[in-house]
């Protein structure tokens, strides 16, 4: 098991380094000098040179890459060119919105999808099953940002129950902040839940058809007991795979949804940074998000091993 973890961890590091290298190189070849962006084109050559030195731009690229990479460990990610504050501070601020939003969306979508999938599997070939399947098709087809707009139309503009966008900040109390996150979280979660419910349904149906379920029933377990003790654990293996894949969609979705609801999170930050050509911020956030995706895949791999003993004893 430890060996398994270490091997996965090594792959994780290699992928992360490769990803950061690509991002670094891509940003490097971009035209435009960050110092010029910060000071404007009319700046004095001496001031520019001084700023370059301060930003470390005068040193060779490999050295800057290593320094930058080390920044992810030390927390020093450089200075934003437009905000003039450390990028790590910016990110930490914005993460206070994106983090809870993503978490709420994952919890919500799982909480909806798994019971729904179970329900559909239990009602196999009946109306409830067909309903879940249709719901899944809708989840695949409805873009989350449009769903967000529809939620705003209904719950903010027509009914006036919830804010249409913006974020009051956590310092104003948990209540208003949470209210501001409800619609975005639902917009993010529901389409994902529809897809996940379909996956859960077929995973449970597949597991129910396995021979070991018949063995469990032959032992005298009721249908329900066999489902809980023998089907679900096995069905979780494909479900966790899809949840891991969905996480990267969720991150991408969060970027879009934050723009729908004017939430000052990471997604909005990266978006603003692009339009202001604040490349340090773009670079940092892209690597951070890619790193999160890779890390989640690592966690999924570990979860596999927890769920499936066949993987644990796998040796090479």
């Amino acid at each position: 098991m430890i060996q398994f973890c270490l091997r996965r961890l090594a792959t994780l590091c290699v992928t992360l380094i490769a990803a950061s290298a690509v991002v670094f190189v891509v940003m490097e070849v971009l035209p435009g000098d960050p110092a010029v962006v910060m000071l404007g084109t009319e700046a004095q050559p001496e001031t520019l040179a001084a700023l370059r030195k301060q930003l470390g731009l005068d040193r060779p690229a490999p050295e800057r890459y290593v320094t930058w990479l080390a920044g992810f460990v030390t927390g020093d990610l450089g200075l934003s060119q437009t905000y003039r504050v450390p990028v790590s501070e910016l990110i930490a601020d914005r993460l206070a919105i994106t983090g809870p939003l993503a978490l709420a969306a994952i919890v919500l979508s799982t909480a909806i999808a798994l019971p729904l999938g179970l329900f559909a599997a239990a009602r196999h070939r009946r109306l409830g099953d067909a309903g879940v399947m249709a719901f899944g098709q809708l989840g695949l087809a409805v873009p989350n940002f449009w769903f967000g707009l529809l939620l705003v139309l209904v719950f903010s503009i027509s009914l006036g129950w919830l804010p249409a966008g913006g974020f009051p900040g956590w310092q104003g109390g948990i209540g208003p902040a949470m209210r501001a996150l409800i619609l975005p979280a639902v917009a993010l979660a529901l389409p994902q839940a529809a897809i996940l419910a379909r996956v859960a349904r077929s995973a449970i149906l597949d597991a129910m058809a396995e021979d070991y379920v018949r063995t469990a029933r032959a032992k005298g377990l009721t249908r329900r007991a066999a489902l809980w003790r023998h089907v679900l654990r096995n069905a979780m293996i494909p479900i966790v795979t899809i949840m891991g894949l969905q996480f990267s969609f969720l991150l991408a979705g969060a970027i879009i949804i934050e723009n729908v609801f004017y939430l000052p999170g990471l997604g909005r930050l990266v978006f603003q940074a692009i339009s202001q050509r604040d490349l340090i911020v773009v670079k940092d956030i892209v690597v951070l998000l890619a790193g999160t995706v890779v890390f989640i895949n690592f966690v999924v791999d570990l979860l596999y091993a927890v769920l499936d003993p066949r993987l644990r004893s796998f040796r090479t």
Binding site: E210, D211, Y212, R214, T215, A216, R217, A218, K219, G220, L221, T222, H230, R233, N234, L307, D308, P309, R310
Partner: peptide
């Protein structure tokens, strides 16, 4: 039937490879 199965009537199946639950 649940009370009888595994208790007074038991059954062995053809496929030993798939008849045991791989995760337990």
């Amino acid at each position: 039937l649940c009370a009888l199965r595994g208790n007074r009537i038991a059954m062995i199946f053809q496929e030993p490879m798939t008849s045991l639950n791989p995760v337990h």
